[in-house]
Amino acid sequence: MSTEMRLGDDGDISGTASQQDKKRPFLDALVSILKSKTSLIGLIIIVLLLLVAVFAPLLAPSNPISGGDLFNRYKGPSADHWLGTDELGRDILSRLIYGTRISIQVGIIAVGIALVIGTFLGAISGFFGRWIDMIVMRIVDILMSFPSILLAIAIVAVMGKGLTNTMIAVGIVGIPQFARIVRSSVLSVKETEYVEAARAVGAKSYRVLFRHVLPNCLAPIIVQTTLSIGTAILDAAGLSFLGLGAQPPKPEWGAMLDAGRAALQTAPWVVIFPGLAILVTVLGFNLLGDGLRDALDPRTKK
């Protein structure tokens, strides 16, 4: 080894130029999110929601379930009850605050189910191809041919009402999208030379898949996860509104909409505020998801 050789590359060892060109993809993404106003708003909304969910007992003025006062039914917004009271005289703000917990929980668990199963199915489907791909993708096609809410209703109808089953149903409905997205990324990543290099050193299939292929499919998975949480919350609220999801007296937003429906004309606040809560939450996740997509997509780089 000559010293000449090392010197030859020395200009690059300091490497400032190449480091400025290509930063770490996720650090880059974070910077890009902070720069874009819309995705920053999304991020702020979600952070606030998470804080509300964590500190619900400190923030809520009264008990969301037993805090009712039957003499104060359907009271409009006032200094005592900022967002009014519902049909049992419970403080709507308190119920909304506790509802945040349920919504976040539903979003994370449902999407977690879809993420794990969908990613697994998509990964083996794209990686092994052939008949595995054929079978998995046809099942996914069948799942996708149903309107999502209809499929979720059918699943809940089979398994029985309740919040847990709702989460499972919404999770199952989300599987096809993850499977497809992961499959398409795996298909492109598995043809790269570093995957071939891993095979050439004798790595077994599972190692190639989990160490080399999947880590390089992360960007679209992250985007899909963020976008799905919004949809999952919406779907779960929809099921609760139809009386299939969370059951009273749980302060679930969809269930609150359902309960307030009867008094829509006389006490609109019972419906308006849970509706707004759902709107803002879903909007937050979608804005962040869109921002992430733009940030992680190299084609949108300036």
């Binding site: 570093y194 290099a197 891993a198 050439a200 050193v201 004798g202 880590p215």
Partner: peptide, 23 residues
Amino acid sequence: LRRLRKDMQLIFQDPFASLNPRM
């Protein structure tokens, strides 16, 4: 076959594509 891999190795053409960017 896997044991054989120990004795035979490959150097690739494109050094930008042959290294896993996440490692």
